[in-house]
Design a protein around this nucleic acid. Sequence first.
RNA 1: CGGGGUGUAGCUUAGCCUGGUAGAGCGCCUGGUUUGGGACCAGGAGGUCGCAGGUUCGAAUCCUGUCGCCCCGACCA
Length: 585
Amino acid sequence: MKFWSRYFIPTLKESPSDAEIASHKLLIRAGLVRKLGGGVYTFLPLGLRVMQKISRICREEMERAGAIELSMPHIHPAEFWADGPRWGPVREIMFRADSAGDGRRAPREPEFVLGPTHEEVITPLIKSEITSYRDLPKNFFQIGTKFRNEIRPRYGLMRAREFVMMDAYSFDADDEGAVRSYMAMKAAYESFFRRIGTNAICVEADTGVMGGSFSHEFMVPAEVGDNDLFYNEESGYAANREKARSSLVPEGHADAAPAGAPEEFPTPGVVTIAALEAQPHGVPADRQFKTLIFIGDGMPFAVILRGSDELEEAKLGSLGFTLTRPATAEEIEPVMGARPGSLGAVRGTIRNPAGLAGVFADHAVRLVGNGTTGANRDGFHLRNVNVTRDLEITRFGDFRRIQAGEPDPLGGRPLKVRRGIEVGHIFKLGTKYSERLDAGYTDDKKERHLFVMGSYGIGLSRTLQAVIEESHDKDGIVWPWAIAPFQVLVCLLDPQDTEATVIAGRLAAAAGRAGADVLVDDRAERPGVKFKDADLIGIPLRITVGGRGIKEGVVEMKWRNAPETLKIPLDESEARVEAAVREKA
RNA sequence: CGGGGUGUAGCUUAGCCUGGUAGAGCGCCUGGUUUGGGACCAGGAGGUCGCAGGUUCGAAUCCUGUCGCCCCGACCA
């Protein structure tokens, strides 16, 4: 039990000017956190209590799923990262942790870095500690601080430079085992998010810089989220934008009947889809082929889309290049024979086909019959172009950015879209890390195999804020019971009144006996101030003890998420409070 | 890192364009009146106007630089 007057809950009437979104304002106004610098926050007592509750539930669910807790260092010798597979892409977000030197010079290369995640630390550890199939599978997790020098920290804890994360790493003997570990984590995540009272949705996700074979994200729906998720409740399909597919091309689709042979026609100055759409040419965008050239690991390749579609660049990851970027006009011309705006993939028109690593077409281009594309000759296009007959396609794939309303890939129902906050991510890594670090075990036939790994993360501090974003009203936070910093607030309106103080003490004790964390507002403030603060900090159950009620022989019970105030006769009050708490807990 | 914005008391801010003694609200302290949804009255403390140069008789205000913070983009839990 805590007394407000002796505790520390610095609430604010006004939001600081640097807070933009509701949850960020409330974090600060309700006295949960204070900013130290950009993306760096102190957890005040109330915020810490919520973090601890979230962490505890997370720990319980991870342990229940068979994961084992450990704790790895926050500073890592830099060579652990230099030896790893992703030093390049990750180093720009890593903090270096060197000796400060003489203040003028710092070592050119970092000696230590602050851990942004721990694959590079745990894999060598397990490599040296686990050598036999008898010790597999294993799944290790930890809950602690991560450091990432985000290019742009934002929205309070939502994207911070220092944040609290649960990260877990599974090691299995084979792929089948790795899938089992992955599924166990997926179930643990679902249970965790449900228990803390958030409505996180699991979606198919892109693996990004982590690499690996497949992945899911857990998203809390919110307007301020920075990711679009496409879904259909009936089919159960859900994926984030980078991964979302739709089934635009019907099963058994055949090319349209050719209207004739491809025919070159002059299009001086026409270098955009829109220009070709306009008169005098009048070719609708969805009858055009869009030909984009990228460089993948140093080699140019082409991507073909419908003129009306946009490329989803993340989907190029499926091509297997480790690094892709758009090609420059200077790189394109020698290979294609023309500059951007006049490009195409019609057989025989590419100047140096051997110079291309491939021509990859989005499935949707198959819908284009007798289309128009660049002639690989500046100022000319080709009409009557048909996919199978005319285009030089290495293979089809999913490359386009999808739109809400398109048919979902499972049942063809319209996809809906909404914004979401990514709070958790699970990856099936496969052998990417174990291969690079040569981490493996010996099986019962004395043969050596690589560990098949998975890695799993939940942004716990981000989750805290996502819950606020999801659960607040105009007056303040509405905490779910399980993670509320206190579950019961006994609001003692007049702490000078001895009788009321005694009653408040008894009710607080009763709530505590029933298992609630209790806060007693014993401040010498006016009732209005106390009520406003109570709503702001969002304690689920408020018990008001005041002179007016006592005169009537009642105390009042009010749930934060319900409008009505219940009057409870004094002689029943302790039992009623206990019962209310037990029902929740 | 590119683009935009902003920096004045613990918080929210006015003043800046058009240079001339730095103002308000909230919060805080004292006294009084109040006391069931952010009370009222009176008094008070608190600011080298982010920092460094420059222009000027004189700079919060104009100029240059620099730093912090916020927003938009790529990235992420």
